[in-house]
Amino acid sequence: MGLDPVDPIDPMAICNHYDIHLSKLSEIDPRSPFSGAKSSLFSAVTVPCGYRTAIVHNDSHHPHRQRSNICHELAHCFLGHECAPPLTEDGDRARDGGIEAEANYLGGVLLVTNRSRTPHRQ
């Protein structure tokens, strides 16, 4: 992708590179109950779209949080996690702690640059 070892990645460019469609929640549903005062209730979700994958993210969050949300969803994709319905039949949030921990870790790694390392020069 033309990045130097210390360059931060651009999650949007990563989505484009891997043909993952990135959608803003406000473009899908401008009156979403998950924006505004209740924006903390929804961050992002990975959605299968036929042979493609899409990530819907809450664009009402701070830009840094949006990057984090998108990288978390990219981590699910890179780790091969299967998409599952977000809610149980009872309407509770479906969550696998192990899978989420893996995505949290890799998502964070994707965000951290390698600025502490300087290129070795001879």
Rank of each mutant, 00 (worst) to 15 (best):
A37C: 02
R65I: 14
S60Q: 06
I20M: 07
Q66E: 15
R95K: 12
R95I: 10
F42G: 08
V45F: 00
Q66G: 03
S68K: 15
S23T: 03
D90K: 15
I14E: 07
D96A: 13
Q66L: 03
H62D: 14
S35C: 03
A13D: 13
P48H: 04
H76F: 00
E73I: 05
H76K: 05
G80I: 14
A84D: 02
S68D: 14
L22W: 07
E89H: 04
P85A: 12
M12I: 13
R31I: 02
A75F: 02
V56Q: 01
G36N: 11
T53M: 08
S23G: 00
R67Q: 14
G50H: 09
E100G: 08
E73Q: 13
V45A: 09
A44Y: 03
D29G: 02
L41Y: 09
T118M: 09
V112D: 13
A37G: 06
H72D: 04
R121W: 11
I28T: 06
C71S: 14
P8A: 11
S68G: 12
F78H: 01
L74E: 03
H64N: 07
G80D: 09
S116W: 10
N16D: 12
G98A: 13
R117G: 02
T53F: 03
H76T: 00
E82I: 04
V112E: 14
I20C: 05
G107T: 11
M12F: 09
V112K: 15
G98I: 10
R115D: 06
P119S: 11
E82T: 11
G36H: 09
L79H: 03
P63S: 12
N114F: 07
C71N: 15
L22D: 09
F34T: 07
Q122R: 15
E100I: 03
S40E: 15
N69G: 04
G97F: 06
K24R: 15
S116L: 11
N16S: 14
I99C: 02
T118W: 03
H62M: 07
T46M: 15
Y51K: 12
I14P: 01
H57V: 12
F34C: 10
P85K: 11
D19T: 06
S23V: 03
N69F: 06
L79Q: 13
P86T: 09
G107I: 09
E89T: 08
D92R: 15
P30R: 10
S40C: 05
L87S: 04
Y105I: 05
L87G: 01
H64A: 10
S60V: 02
R52S: 14
Y105K: 10
Q66H: 02
H21F: 01
I20W: 08
L106W: 08
E82W: 02
H61G: 00
T88M: 04
V112M: 13
T46K: 15
N58I: 08
S60C: 03
L110Q: 06
M1K: 10
D7L: 01
A84E: 15
R52T: 12
R52H: 13
S40A: 15
T118Q: 13
N114D: 11
N16H: 14
L79K: 10
A94S: 11
D7N: 08
D4Q: 11
Q122G: 10
Y105H: 11
T88W: 06
R117L: 08
S60M: 00
P30T: 10
C15Q: 10
G80V: 13
H81E: 04
M1D: 06
L41Q: 14
C83A: 14
P48C: 03
D90Y: 08
L22S: 08
G108F: 01
